[in-house]
Amino acid sequence: MSIILQIKDLKKYFPITKGVILKKTLGYVKAVDGVSFSIERGETFGLVGESGSGKSTIGRLIVGLLQPTSGSIFFDKVDLTKINKKEFQNIRRRMSMIFQDPFTSLDPRKNVMQIIAEPLIIHTDMERKKREEIVYQLLERVGLRQEDAFKYPHQFSGGQRQRIAIARALTLSPDLIIADEAVSALDVSVQAKIINILMSLQKDLNLTYLFIAHDLSVVCHISHKVGVMYLGKLVEVGSKSAIFQDPLHPYTQALLEAVPVPDPNIMVAKGLMVLKGEIPSPINPPSGCRFHPRCPYATKRCTEEEPTLIDNGENHLAACHYTDEIKSKRKIIKQPLKDSA
């Protein structure tokens, strides 16, 4: 397998300014603060984190909606931060994005045909007939009918709209699709359908996904590799099974234990783990390990020394000083995943 996307020490600081003419910078929101990871072709990389973790900012940096403060983004070995606009225009057709809210991500004044064909109009001089043919094929791929091509977004339900958005993301046969909370706004029954569509499309078209979400269960289901973010930092990266069955970072553990599972017996047995405190502001993140004020294992060292991502074998990286101790001290030993009935 080859690496399609590699991010190296990516940083994005948003200045907090005052005044319009005489701008004064009061400080910075360190939304993304030195993040590195890579995605291999054909796999799904899940990026999880709570609000303010910087996960969406990373997606926006990759597609060029934002310019990074420093660091590099290699897409198929080309550093996107070092190329000019024209070169970027050629590369951007190889990636696309699916948004969270299907009610705002489609222009209400365009019909489905116009929406899905727009990337072709921008990037090719294909004739109309051919464009229409491609749109019909795409509609079929995402489970919509040809007749739907001339309807408008408001005539569809949320799930159908998200299918239209997926079709639009597929129009130029991209290599990488960034799905930013792509199923979070949908109801459970519809969400399941969209997840299934995304997964079967990946199989058929060898797509690569960067799947950004806050819902751990969804990320667990769809991803091959997972990165956990906290306050602009990647605290743990690893294969799906490593992250969900053998989490090393205390934050990952806490996140997993905080999710209520739809089974009263399990819930009675394990309860919810409650992490103390709030998510701190990314303007003045805590010193040392950013998680230390909320961490049940924190020591003095954690307040002073910032941990780096350390490989614990099999590409399972965690940024914690005490992974070994925590591993042995863990109260709840997870059972291996049961297969579904």
Partner: peptide, 17 residues
């Protein structure tokens, strides 16, 4: 600020478009 405008920008649509 709506997503469909961002979507067009990601596609590479020009400002005029």
């Amino acid at each position: 600020g709506l997503d469909y405008v961002e979507a067009a920008r990601i596609m590479g649509a020009s400002n005029a478009r």
